[in-house]
Write a protein that binds this DNA or RNA. Structure first.
Lengths: 224, 224
DNA sequence: GCGACACTTCGAGCACGGTCGAAACATTGC
DNA sequence: GCAATGTTTCGACCGTGCTCGAAGTGTCGC
């Protein structure tokens, strides 16, 4: 029996799929709440809470309480580096990943992430909005550009409306490894897409499926 | 549910104590057999074999068959880097390690590692033998010095005796993070220590306990 | 060939840990 | 104060996977 640091303890914390998903979600750098992490991991709130307390006890997370919101984040760059290293090995040894089925393909294109859109479409949208300087991205932070108010009010979205949550936030999209738009603006855009019936949510899934016409509308407005 | 590489799968492979011990043992760089790894991990041979096939399937190990010996080694530097990263986090977050009890203290001083001596005494012995140029250490490899034959034959150990296993081998000692002496010479020295009754093996443990007189003899011969 | 050795596979037992619903707790807003 | 919201704790269920003894497979030495 070897001695030394208890590496099995740490590795087994990462070794549960739900916890691994949570940690991957937190690799984006932004702290998330228990509810958001439960959604990301695909488990119920009590289960997520249990996992989070284990990760806390293991020293892998930090907790910032703000009123009734509790934001969980990675404990530090060392932990992030470890996740990176594990991800690298998983990528290297696991190109034998199961071929994505039709449902997974839909998820890859567009899906709900908490209350906003994720997937290839969402990543393309954010890229285009930044290109057009509607939004400004410095590093990890996203801010409104000068034309943002006019641009979004034309769509019936009031970006000036004060909200407790940040208006814009970057959210790392694992399927394409790029950020997409979160925050109240991201939520408002998803609302718009669903309200206009450009797309509908797949039942019992996070996939978002665009209708042919809806896709054209979406691309005209956001990717044009 | 996030997509991307299956990091939980890899992490859970490392997350079992037996497998973690095996991987730590292999961090020394030398490939080991299933029996040696079973001893290191403190599990039976069937259990070890099962773990090894899982690690193989997960792509974390390579296997070199040589006759009826099968040497397992880490699959590559990327895997080693991952173990390093996990070890680093475990060290950082886990200084709350349980205080070693009396039995653990004995293990730390001297214990059996397969068929040779490990622990602080063994590390000190190798250091001294290298200082006196009885053994020569380049990097990870250990060779016999010119005075080795004379030195050991005085102790009744024939280093010229041909053996299938290498005469000298470095074996990483986790409790002190330094190498100690393995191979047939390491085995012969342990035999000598036990035959001369300088020390005895603790029952149901790998600890080796020196008698006061035996310790003096050992230190005179190997640390003098 | 045969025995000895190194290792793997099989089968069954068992415990740990993940899971969720319901309920308790905490904080905010009215 | 009370209702609404976000989160944790409790209790019970259930499955995965770790474990070992015994038997089977393959390789070496004589």
């Amino acid at each position: 029996m070897r001695e030394g640091p208890d590496i099995a303890r740490i590795a087994s914390l990462v070794g549960d799929p739900a916890r691994a998903n949570m940690l991957s979600a937190l690799m984006g750098g932004t702290a998330l709440t228990a509810s958001e992490l439960a959604l990301e991991a695909g488990v119920s709130l009590p289960t997520a809470s249990s996992h989070l307390s284990k990760l806390m006890e293991g020293g892998l997370l930090t907790l910032a309480s703000q009123g009734r919101h509790r934001y969980y984040g990675l404990a530090g760059p060392q932990v992030a580096g470890m996740i990176e290293a594990i991800t690298g090995v998983a990528e290297a040894v696991g190109p034998k990943r199961v071929r994505p089925g039709p449902r997974d393909a839909a998820m890859r294109v567009a899906r709900v992430c908490y209350d906003h859109l994720a997937g290839e479409q969402a990543v393309a949208m954010l890229d285009r909005l930044v290109d057009r300087k509607v939004l400004l991205r410095d590093d990890k932070e996203i801010r409104l550009g000068h034309s943002a108010a006019a641009h979004f009010s034309a769509l019936g979205i009031d970006v000036e409306a004060k909200a407790r949550r940040p208006v814009c936030r970057a959210c790392l999209d694992w399927s394409v490894r790029r950020s997409h738009l979160a925050g109240t603006l991201g939520a408002a855009i998803l609302d718009k897409i669903l309200a206009e019936k450009w797309a509908r949510r797949e039942k019992d899934s996070r996939a978002v499926v665009f209708s042919p016409g809806g896709r054209r509308q979406f691309e005209r407005v956001f990717l044009g």
